[in-house]
Amino acid sequence: MTETAPADRNRTQRFLFEEADIRGEIVQLGGAYREIVEIHQYAPGVSRLLGEFMAAAVLLATTLKFEGKLVLQARSQGQVPLIMAECDHRLRIRAIARGAQEATAERFDQLLAGGQLAITIDPTRGQRYQGVVPLAEQSLAHSLDAYFRQSEQLGSRFWLAADGQQAAGMLLQQLPAQLEQDNTLRARQWEHACTLAATLQTAELLQLGAADIAHRLYHEDPLRLFEPVSVTFECNCSRERTLNALASLPAAEIRELLEELGSVTMDCEFCNQQYRFDEADLSGFMQPDSPDRLH
Rank of each mutant, 00 (worst) to 15 (best):
R9H: 08
R9W: 14
T12L: 12
R14P: 02
F17R: 02
D21N: 08
I22F: 08
R23D: 12
G24R: 03
R34C: 02
V37K: 03
Q41R: 12
P44L: 12
G45K: 01
L50K: 02
A55C: 15
A57N: 09
T63L: 06
F66S: 02
E67Y: 07
E67T: 12
K69E: 15
S76I: 00
S76A: 13
Q77W: 14
G78C: 07
P81H: 03
I83S: 00
M84P: 00
A85F: 01
E86A: 08
R90V: 13
L91Y: 07
G99F: 03
G99P: 00
Q101A: 11
A105G: 09
R107S: 14
F108R: 01
D109A: 06
Q110R: 10
L112M: 10
G115T: 03
T120Y: 07
I121T: 11
D122P: 05
R128V: 09
G131A: 13
V133S: 15
A136F: 10
E137V: 01
H142Y: 13
L144V: 00
Y147K: 05
F148V: 02
S151C: 06
E152N: 11
Q153N: 07
A161W: 08
D163V: 08
G164I: 09
Q165I: 06
M170W: 03
Q173M: 15
Q174E: 08
L175H: 07
P176H: 07
Q178V: 10
Q178E: 06
E180N: 09
D182P: 04
R188I: 11
E191V: 06
H192R: 04
L196W: 02
L200C: 10
Q201A: 13
Q201Y: 15
Q201R: 14
A203G: 13
D212P: 05
I213H: 00
Y218C: 05
H219S: 05
E220W: 06
E220M: 06
L223I: 04
R224S: 08
L225C: 06
F226I: 06
F226L: 12
E227D: 11
V229G: 10
S230D: 05
S230R: 14
E234S: 11
E234V: 05
N236R: 13
C237F: 03
R239G: 07
L246Q: 09
P250C: 10
A251D: 05
E253A: 11
I254W: 00
E256F: 10
L258V: 10
E259V: 15
E259W: 07
E260Q: 05
G262A: 03
S263E: 15
S263Y: 08
V264P: 04
Q273K: 13
D278P: 10
E279D: 12
A280T: 15
D281K: 08
L282E: 04
P291N: 09
